[in-house]
Computed example of a mutant assay.
Amino acid sequence: MQKPLIQQACDWLAGQQKAMVDCLEALVNIDSNSYDKAGTDAVADLIAQWLEQDGITVIRHPRPDSGDILEAHLGEIGQGHALLMGHRDTVFPTGTVASRGYTQQDNLGFGPGVADMKSGLVMNCFVLRALSRLPHCPLPVRALFTADEEIGSPDGRAFIEAAAQGARAALNVEPGRVSGNVVTGRKGGAGFLINVAGKAAHAGVSHADGASAIETLARKITKLHALTDYDTGITTNVGTITGGVSRNTVAPSASAQLDIRFVTTAQRDLLYQAIQSIIAETEILGTKVTIEQTSEFYPLEERMSRALFKIYQSQANAIGFAVDGECTGGCSDAGWTASLGIPTLCGLGPVGAKMHTDEEYCLLDTLIPRTQALTTTLLALSELPAVTTTKLAY
């Protein structure tokens, strides 16, 4: 008697530990900063090679100014497919690999982007490879490997939203939490650049003739920070300020970078309105303030992950590990799919910690079970009816 599909997939994956670690080492040893097109494209080359060797359909969307978008298909993509997501870029500057490439110590793998999210990319590749080996894949799967998530997905967002149309679920392999949990909720966030133009004057001789851009900015920072509300999860933070020309000159210019975080899209809308009102207020006559949005992520609201998490949790328990869901203040591409009304789950990758630092690591013994859990979740989803998704108005 032929084994059930879930058992067949898990059995094949159980023997792939060395292969997965070898793939992880290969990816980590490629510099792939968000602005390094050659590097992110080199990562795409390897992924495409691995998938095509197993007969998996790979489509490459060339991009002129950022890393190419890589897409993989299993089955006929249409209404009711599952979307796997992962990003190839890291925050580390080109040249990092030369000074500290992949290393391994017992169960820990180290290196730039080893957890965020080279291990997740390996995981998605092996999920696709496991499904491709089955007598038939009962669920169409679309996998997207983008190249600019660490800078807000300015190019990748459109491809994510297009690939998500008609999906029954979106699963993002950002690193699992250090607790072993997956991510069932993420804050949304945005970045802004605030510029203030004032009027210079000698601070001792003609102080009254000037209009201080720094003073205007300082007053606005106080008001912007007052929008923080820990009880509701809203935070605002001016993280950098610059301005002025000398100690004894009334500042003719100043600028600041503002970061905001929010839990729901409703909070986002109100927060944007409040910020615009603060910017529009006149602090000092003779100064002019402008604001430019530089980045944005939508939130993954917990209501969008609840049902999908129950399926994943059940599959993880069957494989042999306990998992819970948790929320985080960090943003990810999961917010784009959740904002379309698509059930979305994040943090499904191998467990890692200390992301974006020189001490970043991945727990190598989580590669197999987390890949098995994601694979079996996809197979479990195939038994559910496809749900038509409609883009929500945000």
Rank of each mutant, 00 (worst) to 15 (best):
A266G: 00
E302H: 10
Y361F: 15
A338C: 00
T265Q: 10
M1V: 10
K354M: 10
D231K: 15
D116S: 07
T375P: 03
E76T: 14
Q315N: 01
Q104D: 00
E25T: 10
G243E: 05
Q165C: 12
K220P: 06
A98P: 05
T264P: 00
G55Y: 08
Q79E: 13
S99C: 01
A72R: 03
A256V: 05
P343C: 04
V263H: 03
L227Q: 01
G185V: 06
T390S: 10
P350K: 13
T337F: 03
G156W: 13
P64D: 12
Q267C: 02
E359L: 12
G166T: 04
G111H: 12
D89A: 06
S32I: 13
N317S: 08
G330R: 02
F321A: 11
P350D: 08
M20D: 07
A164V: 09
S332A: 15
Y35W: 09
A318T: 00
V91E: 04
H87F: 08
E215Q: 11
R142K: 15
V58F: 01
M304N: 06
G185F: 02
Q49S: 13
I6V: 03
W336I: 03
K3I: 08
K391Y: 14
N107D: 15
T375D: 05
R261V: 08
D31V: 00
I214H: 00
E76A: 05
T371R: 10
Q17G: 00
C10N: 06
D36C: 06
